[in-house]
C-alpha cells in the first residue's frame, strides 16, 4: 500500500490543483454566461454559477436596440464588423503572403532593413499610432468609413503576418520550386499551386490573427467612427456600460454574441493549423 498510497495522494493533489485552475480560469466566463442569461442588468456577483431565473431578455435587448430615428443597430453593426474583419483578413493575407514570399525567396536591396522595420513597428504600443493614423485617414477622407478601418487594420496586422509566413516559407524546400520550374511553372503558378497550398497552416494562423484584429479592435474604431450606425461591435458593446449606464446584462449577452464567430473560426481553422503537411515531400 505504501508506495501506491503516496502516488494516489500525489494524483489527488494534482487533480485538485488542476480543478482549481480550471475554476479560476472559467469563472469569469461562467459569470458572463450567468449574467447574460439572467435577464437582469445589475452586476450580481454571487458564487452560484447559474442565474436565479433563466431569460433571453438581455440577448433580445442587445439585438434590437434602436437609434433615436428608429434604425435597429445590431444588424448594421454586425455587418460593419463582418465587412471590416473579412476584408482585413483577405486584404492582409494577400499583402502578407506576397510580401513574405518575396522576402523569403528573393535577395534585393532593402530586404534586411524591411524585415527589421517590420519587427521594430511591432515594439510600439498601438495607441502611439492613433494620432498619425487619424491625420492620415482625415486627409484621405476615410474617417467614419469602413474602408479606413480595413486599411488600418490590415496594415497593422501585416508585420506579424509577414514574419510568421516568411518563417514558414523558409522551411519549404527550394527543390520543390526548382522542380516546378523545370516542369514549366511560372513564378505565379509556383506561388499559387505549390507555395500557398503548402503554407496552409501558416496562412490559417495569420488569417485568424488578422480576423481577430479586425473583429476585436476597439480603440481605433472608437476614435475613427463617430456615428452609431457605423460602429463595429466592440465599440457598440462598450456603449452599454459607458454612455447608457450600467447595462451589464446586455453587455454580457452582447459579448457572447460577439465571441461566437471567433470561436467558430477557431474551430474550423484548427484542422488546418496542424502542421506536418510537409511530410513526404522530401526525404531526409
Amino acid at each position: 500500500m505504501g508506495s501506491r498510497g503516496s502516488t494516489q495522494l500525489e494524483r489527488i493533489f494534482k487533480h485538485a490543483l488542476l480543478i482549481f485552475a480550471v475554476i479560476v480560469t472559467m469563472f469569469p466566463v461562467i459569470f458572463v454566461l450567468k449574467l447574460a442569461f439572467s435577464g437582469q442588468q445589475q452586476l450580481n456577483i454571487g458564487l452560484v454559477p447559474w442565474p436565479d431565473d433563466f431569460s433571453l431578455g438581455n440577448f433580445a435587448d442587445f439585438t434590437t436596440r434602436k437609434t433615436a430615428e428608429g434604425v435597429t443597430l445590431f444588424p448594421r453593426q454586425l455587418f460593419n464588423s463582418v465587412v471590416v474583419a473579412t476584408c482585413t483578413t483577405l486584404f492582409g493575407i494577400f499583402l502578407a503572403t506576397t510580401a513574405a514570399y518575396a522576402l523569403s525567396r528573393f535577395r534585393f536591396p532593402g530586404r534586411k532593413p524591411a524585415l527589421f522595420m517590420f519587427l521594430v513597428s511591432q515594439m510600439f504600443p498601438g495607441t502611439l499610432m492613433l494620432i498619425p493614423i487619424y491625420v492620415i485617414l482625415d486627409r484621405l477622407h476615410l474617417l467614419n468609413n469602413l474602408l479606413g478601418l480595413i486599411l488600418v487594420y490590415s496594415t497593422t496586422a501585416i508585420p506579424f503576418c509577414v514574419w510568421m509566413l516568411k518563417g514558414y516559407f523558409d522551411t519549404i524546400p527550394l527543390d520543390l520550386e526548382e522542380s516546378a520550374r523545370i516542369d514549366g511553372a511560372s513564378p505565379i503558378v509556383i506561388f499559387y499551386k505549390i507555395i500557398l497550398p503548402l503554407a496552409r497552416p501558416a496562412i490559417a494562423v495569420t488569417a485568424l490573427f488578422s480576423f481577430m484584429t479586425g473583429w476585436n479592435e476597439f480603440i481605433l474604431a472608437a476614435t475613427f467612427m463617430d456615428k452609431e450606425v457605423s460602429y463595429t461591435l466592440p465599440v457598440a458593446l462598450q456603449r452599454y456600460v459607458g454612455e447608457y449606464g450600467g447595462s451589464w446584462g446586455s453587455f454580457a449577452a452582447g459579448s457572447i454574441i460577439v465571441s461566437v464567430p471567433v470561436v467558430l473560426l477557431f474551430y474550423f481553422l484548427q484542422r488546418n493549423l496542424v502542421s506536418g503537411l510537409m511530410a513526404g515531400s522530401v526525404k531526409g
Binding site: P173, D175, E178, A180, L277, M278, S281, V282, G284
Partner: peptide, 12 residues
C-alpha cells in the same frame, strides 16, 4: 527533366 536527390515531390 531532372530527378532531384531528395525527390522534391509536391507533397500536397
Amino acid at each position: 527533366a531532372m530527378v532531384f536527390q531528395n525527390y522534391a515531390l509536391y507533397p500536397h
